[in-house]
Write a protein that binds this DNA or RNA. Sequence first.
DNA 1: ATTGACATATATACCGAGTATACATATACT
DNA 2: AGTATATGTATACTCGGTATATATGTCAAT
Lengths: 164, 164
Amino acid sequence: MSVKHSLLALLYEKPRHGYELKTGFEELVQGMWPLNAGQVYTTLDRLERDLLVESPGHDKKDRKLYTITQAGKEELWAWLEKPVGRSLFKDEFYFKFLCASHVTYENRQSMIRNQKETMLKDILHLTHLRKQMVLSDNKTMKMLIEGALLHLEADIKWLDMIAD
Amino acid sequence: MSVKHSLLALLYEKPRHGYELKTGFEELVQGMWPLNAGQVYTTLDRLERDLLVESPGHDKKDRKLYTITQAGKEELWAWLEKPVGRSLFKDEFYFKFLCASHVTYENRQSMIRNQKETMLKDILHLTHLRKQMVLSDNKTMKMLIEGALLHLEADIKWLDMIAD
DNA sequence: ATTGACATATATACCGAGTATACATATACT
DNA sequence: AGTATATGTATACTCGGTATATATGTCAAT
């Protein structure tokens, strides 16, 4: 989603080259969300063009290094500070039900059932993952998982609400 | 987000021309989420290319009409039936905190505070909107708003959890 | 020792979705 | 009569993402 800003965050830690950013990103998301390598390089091109990163040159192995600029840091801070907008419609979950309400669609029940089934599986999976994060003492991931679980519980509550 | 499928849903009701789809879409989202008119036509081009819609010709005022095809209906049904995936990271809300955890960022508290403030305002706004929907007996919108409120409450609960 | 698989490393072509903008005609209002 | 706004369609451009090409390095098995 915002690969751009995550690259800025990674460069904030230390200078890196393209491939290092790819691996850094995947480490950040624990290997879930595989990142297409090509996207790293095109994103870096745009970041360099916009003066948010710059290159001090290549390392011994001829890999182009990148560092974050002052403007880049400011962009990153601004992004972090800016609250995310939770629009009613940008969430595909709700938007789908909105569309469904406009087609004479007899299978509303199966739609709800499918969705609920998937979410219950997700909850099981995340609960399991949460335990692993507790064991490996990964507090950030544990935190994120707990957030996702809260969301899923809200979703299921809503599905039950509208199922009547 | 999925303008494409919402156009299919609108064409499922009845044949329309481009501009009618634009107004139909904006009616669907109650005027929130302004749709760029150009996007309607490029999306229709792709839908026609993929044989999901077709044109029976122009009306008296020379506006090109579109109808949904059988393949288009099947695409729409499949999309409606397919549960939305709630990835841990595709949600910018969590992803931002993940990035923040990787920059030595002293302003975590203000980040949380900003986000919470915005969300409390959103709750007020949606609560007000909900009342209007009850008065105008718009059950679908009322339903969506209640879903969004459940999400916002979950978000705030989470922000309080991590604020320590 | 060589083959084959996999990791490292970068680059390009292409597509879908969204924004900006141009360009008409019709209608309403001042 | 002139101007603003609604109706109606189209194109150029950008961004983000996917697929794919390509090259080198490393390690394991035959």
